[in-house]
Each structure stands twice: as structure tokens, then as C-alpha cells.
């Protein structure tokens, strides 16, 4: 039984974890490190729209923005991926062909996951068939909160296998496991859910340095979404997984990160939590392969700050395309 692979999760002291997370917000990022952070953060964005009223037109314009966020400035990187509902994957696949920007699709009955397992798995299969490069699944929070860890584990394992089985040639379908930490409530739960997700992806042989498997904070539909203490605890789970198994797990805070300043505070947290854990120089996780921001409005604030570094003045919000 794979449950044996779930390591005993350590407890988390919420007060000290929160204090440590807060310490990153007093890091002062200036000059060249600011410009680098802005570009790095932009290259890590999963440009997202997840609304009932999403249209093919909106999806196409987001795809265009994802490839060239600041037209006329070739040094400004593309974002890492776009993130849509499964119904929009085909439109996005058409728009992004050959650009290198990945297509992430939420699946498994996003955002609640309150559907029969076969429906959730079919949802995932369809997104992969339509051309999704990355699947953002939700865990079964009901089972988790009822103490049924093995159910949570088995379901993540099933989705992981769907992704892994789709690997062929250059195509690697990546998985992001959304814990919906706002519903898990405690940092102890966040840590346990992280460990379960990592163990399941490990068993499916999904974890690699290219970001085969991520853990992700939130759907964006529940408040609070991503917070720094939650992200810190998840990064610690990622670090311990590397210490224990030598594997690389990606991290995606999603929802609630709107400003460039918040973004570089997250980068500071990644650097100081994961640097020196593996044998790479620098911090291996400071890369779009292993770290993403799930956000819709963050990209424009990053662009606004980048423009400010160039011109010395702040542009108005309407100077940047909404999508």
C-alpha cells in the first residue's frame, strides 16, 4: 500500500513560522537586484483567468500578452504559462503554438472537487487531450478534513498517473496539486497535505528538475488564498522532500499576490529557504521550472515597476493592456 510512503509530518509552530515569514518582508531589494527580481517574477507568472464568463477572445488576448508582456521590449521575458478552465484549452493551444509559453488547465472539478472521482479523472484526461501542458488539480478537502489521508493520497496518485502516462517524446505533462490552504486552516494541516501530495507524485514518478510536480496553495476562489506563512511551510516540505528523497518539487502560491513588492518578498523566501539544500550553486528553485506565481493582476504591476526603472516615472494603470 502506497500509504507507507507518506512520511510522518512534523508539527508547525504557527507563531514562529509567521514571524519568520514576516522577516522576508523587511528585505530591501534595490537597483540591479530589483530589475532582476521583476524580470524573474514575470517569467514565473501563470497568467490566469478562471471565470464563468471567460470567452475565446479574452483567452486569445491573454495568450498574446503572455508571449510579449511588453511589446517593443525584447528583453522583457514571456510569462511561464497561462491558466484557464478546460473548455479554453483548445483555443489557447492554437494561440500559443510554438511560443514556448505553457498551457495550464485547472481540472478535477475545480474549484471544489466535489464530483465523483471518475468525472474528475475524465475532466483531467480531456484537458490533456486538448493540449494542456500542465494540470492544476484540487485535492479532496472533505476527505482530508475527515482524516482520510489514504483517499486524498490515492486520488492525487490517480491524477499523477494520468499526467505521467501522457509523457511522450518532448511532451511532459506537469501536475500542480492545489491544497486550498484557506480551507485547511492550520499550518499543521498545510504541512500534512503538502507531504501527502509530494509522496503521491513521487510514487507516480512525476517529480523532476523540470517541474514535473508542483504543490500549489489555492484556487483563488477561497479567502485567504496564498499567504507567506503558508508558502513558507510548503517550501519547508519541499526542502525536506529533497533532503529525504533527493527530489525536486515545484511551488506555486496563487491568489492574492498583486504587487511587485509582494512578489520579490516571496522570491526572498524561496532563496533563503531553499538555497544550499541541493548541490546546485545559487537557489535552484529561483526559476520558472520550479516556482510560479498564480496571478492575474501581478503581471501588470511588475511591468509598471519595470517601466518605472526605465523612465523614472510611474505609468498609469491604463497604460498597460488588461490582457
Amino acid at each position: 500500500m502506497p500509504k507507507a510512503l507518506i512520511p510522518p509530518s512534523p508539527t508547525v509552530d504557527a507563531i514562529m513560522a509567521t514571524e519568520r515569514a514576516k522577516s522576508f518582508t523587511t528585505r530591501s531589494i534595490k537597483k540591479e537586484s530589483k530589475e532582476q527580481a521583476l524580470k524573474l517574477a514575470l517569467s514565473m507568472v501563470d497568467l490566469t483567468t478562471l471565470e464563468g464568463k471567460d470567452s475565446p477572445e479574452k483567452v486569445r488576448s491573454i495568450c498574446r500578452k503572455a508571449v510579449t508582456p511588453m511589446p517593443g521590449h525584447p528583453d522583457i521575458p514571456s510569462v511561464a504559462a497561462v491558466c484557464f478552465y478546460p473548455s479554453m484549452v483548445k483555443v489557447a493551444a492554437e494561440a500559443l503554438k510554438g511560443t514556448g509559453v505553457k498551457i495550464a488547465s485547472v481540472a478535477t472539478g475545480f474549484p471544489s472537487g466535489q464530483y465523483p472521482l471518475d468525472v474528475r479523472l475524465r475532466d483531467t484526461e480531456k484537458a490533456i487531450e486538448d493540449g494542456a501542458d500542465e494540470i492544476d488539480m484540487v485535492i479532496n478537502r472533505g476527505a482530508f478534513l475527515a482524516g482520510q489521508r489514504d483517499v486524498v493520497y490515492d486520488e492525487i496518485l490517480a491524477v499523477s498517473r494520468l499526467c505521467r502516462d501522457a509523457w511522450s517524446g518532448d511532451r511532459h505533462v506537469h501536475l500542480k496539486v492545489i491544497l486550498e490552504t484557506g480551507e485547511l486552516e492550520t499550518l499543521d494541516n498545510v504541512r500534512l497535505a503538502s507531504d501527502i501530495a509530494i509522496a503521491a507524485m513521487l510514487e507516480a514518478n512525476l517529480l523532476d528538475e523540470q517541474g514535473g510536480g508542483f504543490i500549489k496553495t489555492s484556487t483563488g476562489k477561497v479567502s485567504p488564498a496564498a499567504t507567506m506563512p503558508v508558502t513558507l511551510v510548503m517550501l519547508e516540505a519541499i526542502r525536506d522532500a529533497h533532503r529525504r528523497e533527493g527530489v525536486f518539487v515545484g511551488m506555486k502560491p496563487a491568489g492574492g499576490i498583486r504587487t511587485a513588492k509582494e512578489a520579490w518578498h516571496y522570491l526572498c523566501m524561496v532563496k533563503e529557504t531553499l538555497e544550499g539544500v541541493d548541490s546546485h550553486t545559487g537557489c535552484h528553485w529561483l526559476s520558472p521550472h520550479l516556482f510560479r506565481f498564480g496571478a492575474s493582476s501581478l503581471a501588470n504591476d511588475l511591468l509598471r515597476q519595470l517601466a518605472h526603472l526605465r523612465t523614472g516615472v510611474y505609468a498609469a494603470g491604463y497604460d498597460f493592456a488588461e490582457a
Partner: peptide, 19 residues
């Protein structure tokens, strides 16, 4: 990602540090 995604580049990955 320059090697991955064509038109755009970033000049720093894992080596980012505080000025």
C-alpha cells in the same frame, strides 16, 4: 528560459542576490 521560449529572455535564474 531564453533557450525554451524564443523571443524573450531573462538574465538571472538561480543566482539572484540582494544588492
Amino acid at each position: 528560459r531564453a533557450s525554451v521560449i524564443g523571443p524573450a529572455t531573462i538574465d538571472v535564474t538561480g543566482l539572484w542576490d540582494y544588492a
